[in-house]
Amino acid sequence: MAGDQPAPAVVVVGDVATDVVVLLTGTPAPGSDRSASIATRGGGAGANVAAHLAALGTTVLLAGCIGDDAAGTALAGELAAAGVRLALRTVPGGATGTIVSLVEPDGQRSMLADRGANLALRPADVPPPTPNAHLHLSGYTLLDPGPRDAGLAALAAAVAAGCTVSLDPASTGPLTAYGVERWVSDTAAATLLMPNAEEARLLTGCADLGDAARTLAGVHPVVVVSLGAEGALWAAGDELVHAPAHPATVVDTTGAGDAFVAGVLGAWVVAGGRPDPATALAAGLARAATVVGRAGAR
């Protein structure tokens, strides 16, 4: 980073990828054809959060890996143009990650992931923590053996430096494979945990999301649970705050969780790590509402 630039307020560690968004129409037609609208856009959970933070005016640095291909060059250029500072290592012979998002007419989607160069992330790829900066760690970084050491090292270094750390568990499938007890142990030092509803239930075994949020708040100082159309919860100590979702016509839910995370983190940074819960939730929900109304994650 140039010496005359202010230190980033947030360092994001996570994936950079090309999103292939497939908006499906009609009903499933196994063995036959189904019409769709297909577009290619920038994606990757880490890159999405970083791009939204930059759009909100937060100074942000993204650490990750790209392939030595046209896709990686294009994504780096897009992120830089959006105001994201980059610490992206190009992996020789590697391919930039690609995510195919299949979006049903009701806006729900399933993901097909080829993480490519993202799996080559090493501890040295993450810059040393900057005093007073916040670290946001995408859970995908921990859920594969390749980048796991880098993610755990970044978490430990940030905590040792006195930085606040946020973490999203990312996805229930690989989280189950990782092991819930192992996850809770490995990530207990995070200041702010940001699961969605199903991740919160998986991590606690609680069917009631209020109970799940309170249980997780026994491990982390602050827990924010995104509830999709039902809004979001904030839990800290004995406090439990619910905020309703902002009105939106849902076209595609791809990246809504990343946008929500960025909105909350923007409020977190402005408040010096002590935001008003209702204000932080409203900021996250507002950002998510801007994403679900169109195709693509950012």
Rank of each mutant, 00 (worst) to 15 (best):
M1R: 14
A7V: 13
G14I: 03
T18K: 14
D19M: 06
V20Q: 15
V22P: 07
G31Y: 08
S37R: 15
A39R: 15
R41Y: 14
N48I: 03
V49W: 00
H52M: 05
G57A: 12
C65E: 02
D68L: 06
D69S: 10
G77Q: 08
L79P: 02
A87K: 07
V103N: 00
G107C: 06
R115G: 04
V126C: 01
H134L: 12
L135Q: 00
H136P: 02
L143W: 03
L152F: 09
A153N: 09
A157Q: 09
D168P: 06
T172G: 07
T172K: 06
L175G: 05
E181K: 11
V184K: 12
V184G: 06
T187M: 09
A190C: 14
L192M: 13
L192H: 07
P195E: 04
L202V: 03
L202M: 06
L202A: 01
D211L: 03
A212I: 01
A213D: 03
R214K: 10
A217R: 00
A217P: 01
V219E: 08
H220M: 05
V222E: 01
G231P: 07
A232Y: 03
H242Y: 12
T254I: 09
L265G: 00
R274Y: 09
R274Q: 11
R274D: 10
L285P: 03
R287Y: 09
A297K: 01
